[in-house]
Amino acid sequence: MTNYDIQSSREWWAQRWVDVLESFGWRRRLERARNYARQGNVLQIEFDGAKVSALVQGTAPEPYNVSLSLDLFDDEQWQYVIESMSQRAIFSAKLLAGEMPQNIEEVFTANGLSLFPLTKFDIHSKCSCPDPANPCKHIGAVYYLLGDRFSEDPFVLFQLRGRAKEQILSALRQTRSGQSDAEQPEEPAALSSPEAPIDLHTFWQYDEQLEPSLVVIAPPPSSETVLNVLGPIPIKADPAVNQATGSAQMIVADYLKTVYEQVSQQSVLAAMTTGDRSGMQI
Rank of each mutant, 00 (worst) to 15 (best):
Q209H: 09
F116V: 04
E208P: 02
E106P: 02
Y255F: 14
A248M: 14
T273P: 01
S125T: 14
L256P: 07
L68F: 15
R161F: 09
G275H: 08
V142P: 06
A89K: 11
T59L: 06
P220Y: 09
T109W: 07
G25L: 01
D238F: 04
L118C: 08
A237H: 01
M1F: 08
E211S: 12
E11V: 00
A50N: 08
R163F: 04
S222D: 14
Y143H: 10
Q179E: 14
V226F: 15
F108N: 02
L113G: 08
Y36A: 06
M272C: 10
V56A: 05
A110L: 13
N65K: 15
Q266G: 05
I282W: 07
V66D: 06
L115K: 11
K94Y: 12
K120S: 15
R27L: 01
W204K: 03
N3V: 11
S69D: 13
L210M: 11
G58I: 09
Y206K: 13
W26C: 04
Q249R: 15
A33L: 08
S128P: 01
K51F: 03
V81Y: 06
S92Q: 11
L95G: 05
T109K: 11
A141L: 03
P117K: 09
V215G: 02
R163N: 03
L96H: 14
F108S: 04
K137I: 06
V107C: 12
V229Y: 12
M280A: 13
L160Q: 09
A141Y: 01
R32E: 10
R10N: 00
A93D: 08
A182C: 03
D75P: 00
T273F: 07
Q262I: 06
D19Y: 00
E22F: 03
R10I: 07
Q265A: 15
A54N: 06
I123G: 00
D181L: 15
F24A: 10
P232V: 01
F91E: 03
S267E: 07
F108H: 08
T109Q: 13
Q179A: 13
E105F: 08
S8I: 04
P221C: 07
